[in-house]
Design a protein around this nucleic acid. Structure first.
Length: 479
RNA sequence: UCUUCCUUAGCUCAGUCGGUUAGAGCAUCUGACUGUUAAUCAGAGGGUCCCUGGUUCGAGCCCAGGAGGGAGAGCCA
């Protein structure tokens, strides 16, 4: 008999038929006459209830049907007599494929803290919450490819190992096959990277952007979607040492077109998740409502998760320049009451508290901030005509902060070289990058979106370590 | 890296002023119960009080150092 997944069984299409169910036991309850076994196979957040006649199977054969055990069950799919579900299976045969000793199996049929589940990340997929989170993550990843594919973008695989160390995006992990106990040295005592695997110092990529720009100068529109590594000692709920980033790069795009695309993209993938994972998102939203009950009234969310996502999808993002944002902050009641810990003035980098004020208090929706002072942004961002700002944009999301960082790129050779000099990057280190300005250069733009932050936003999970299967953070690389 | 809080049963957490044998709920086990919804009811078992050192007649509680975790900040996506 062909196995049918729970998601399919719950449609009731096979009502009255003999079916084969395979999955993992969530709970078993009942008495000496009848047992109810809730089985989940990951295809949906819902369990399928199996009704087992206790006299027919006997105590002994049901003994190993415990929380966490893998089972194969045949039986008739029927309309349920109980209230909690539309359909259930009346069992004919029950086979335990893999036992789970209840004395030592860590997951119980009760709620666990997220911190505890993080310590057993290899088992946490089996919970309702993480099942929902990772189904949503999968849907969002698929939607990323679908969106760009429909727009004719080329999916470009940029290198994971790179020798380029001039991007300034963050601290890097070294890649080497040196014997670390016995490093080859040059005459002046420095490590001799010429003897290393690649003949030069290499590291894990911190961004595929520069390589993405190269490809955009041929395919017009490309995107990358792959792992990214930062060796920063960041211990926060929104940083990982290994994360997934999406970086589109478009020839002949200016900053406005860039922002338009980013907004359309974000709305598209959220809408896609709302259409395909509604049950999961409703469950995750309910989790937040329960969590909120423990908080004082004024700290509770105004909107449910579902309402928030629908609001984002159905409303335009607010757009302000950096200069306007600073004006708003300086005229805000919070500023006048000296509520900000950090000083606000034109030229400063906006602090978390400032971004949160703009997004959560002032506009109450995602905000695109553009045209930052050139001194606080990367060298490759295009200098505006005022000579003091660059065509950069950040998209700030409620509760998450910066979710997108992007810019129109500097396509004018002389200005780009001058800005590289300003931050101490040698021309010859990026000769290949400058070739795109030398040969057939054109205005172009792109952005980077942290995929995990997007998953956080859609699932409402407060800690980024709970939206990637096996988080890599300082002092933690378990599993 | 900084600030701050936390670490007691499998899990979540109480533990008074430093004082006899360290508690609760849930989970687990045993029993009861004719359709349950994280079933219910009764009973039982279960402890390296994070580690190391110190103060004290006496430390889960006080002090010092260390480890791990949470929240916030910086850096950023």
């Amino acid at each position: 008999m062909q196995r049918t997944k729970v998601k399919e069984l719950l449609t009731g299409a096979e009502e009255g038929k003999e079916v084969l169910l395979k999955g993992w036991v969530r709970t078993k309850r009942g008495n000496k006459f009848v047992n109810f076994i809730a089985v989940n196979d990951g295809s949906t957040i819902q369990n399928l209830q199996v009704v087992a006649d206790a006299e027919k199977f006997g105590e002994e054969s049901l003994k190993d049907v415990t929380t966490g055990a893998a089972v194969a069950i045949t039986g008739q799919l029927v309309a349920s007599q109980g209230k909690g579900q539309a359909f259930e299976i009346v069992a004919n045969t029950i086979e335990v494929l893999g036992k789970a000793d209840p004395e030592t199996y860590p997951l119980q049929k009760k709620a666990h803290s997220l911190e505890f589940l993080r310590e057993i990340a290899h088992l946490r997929f089996r919970t309702n919450t993480f099942g929902a989170v990772f189904r949503v993550r999968n849907t969002l990843a698929f939607a990323v490819h679908k969106f760009f594919n429909e727009k004719g973008f080329v999916y470009m695989h940029t290198p994971i190992i790179t020798a380029s160390d001039a991007e300034g995006a963050g601290e890097m992990f070294h890649v080497t096959n040196f014997d670390l106990e016995n490093l080859p040295r040059t005459q002046d005592g420095k490590i001799n990277y010429e003897e290393d695997f690649f003949g030069k110092a290499t590291n894990l990529t911190v961004s595929g952007q520069l390589e993405g720009e190269l490809a955009a100068m041929a395919f017009s529109d490309i995107y990358t979607f792959g792992p990214t590594f930062r060796a920063e000692n960041s211990n926060t709920a929104r940083h990982l040492a290994e994360f997934w980033m999406i970086e589109p790069e478009m020839a002949f795009h200016d900053l406005k077109m860039n922002a338009d695309l980013a907004e359309e993209f974000i709305k598209y993938i959220i809408r896609y998740a709302l259409e395909h994972n509604r049950e999961d998102i409703e469950f995750l939203g309910q989790r937040l409502v329960e969590e909120d009950k423990a908080k004082p009234q004024n700290e509770r969310q105004e909107m449910t998760l579902l309402e928030k996502l629908e609001f984002v999808v159905n409303n335009n993002f607010e757009r302000v320049t950096y200069t306007e944002a600073v004006d708003i902050l300086m005229n805000s009641p919070a500023y006048k009451k000296k509520k900000f810990q950090y000083e606000v003035s034109w030229g400063i980098d906006l602090q978390s508290e400032h971004e949160r004020y703009l997004v959560e208090k002032h506009f109450k929706k995602p905000v695109i901030v553009t045209d930052y002072p050139k001194d606080i942004k990367a060298f490759y961002m295009r200098l505006n005509d005022d000579g003091k700002t660059v065509a950069a944009m950040d998209i700030l999301a409620p509760g998450i902060g910066e979710i997108v960082g992007g810019s129109q790129r500097e396509e004018r050779m002389e200005i780009l070289v001058e800005r590289m000099k300003g931050v101490g990057i040698e021309e010859e280190d990026l000769w290949w990058y400058l070739d795109t300005r030398r040969f057939g250069g054109c205005p172009h733009a792109g952005f980077g979106l942290g995929f995990e932050r997007m998953v956080q936003f859609v699932t409402g999970m407060g800690n980024i370590r709970d939206v990637i299967p096996f988080p890599r953070t300082p002092k933690n690389a378990e599993f």
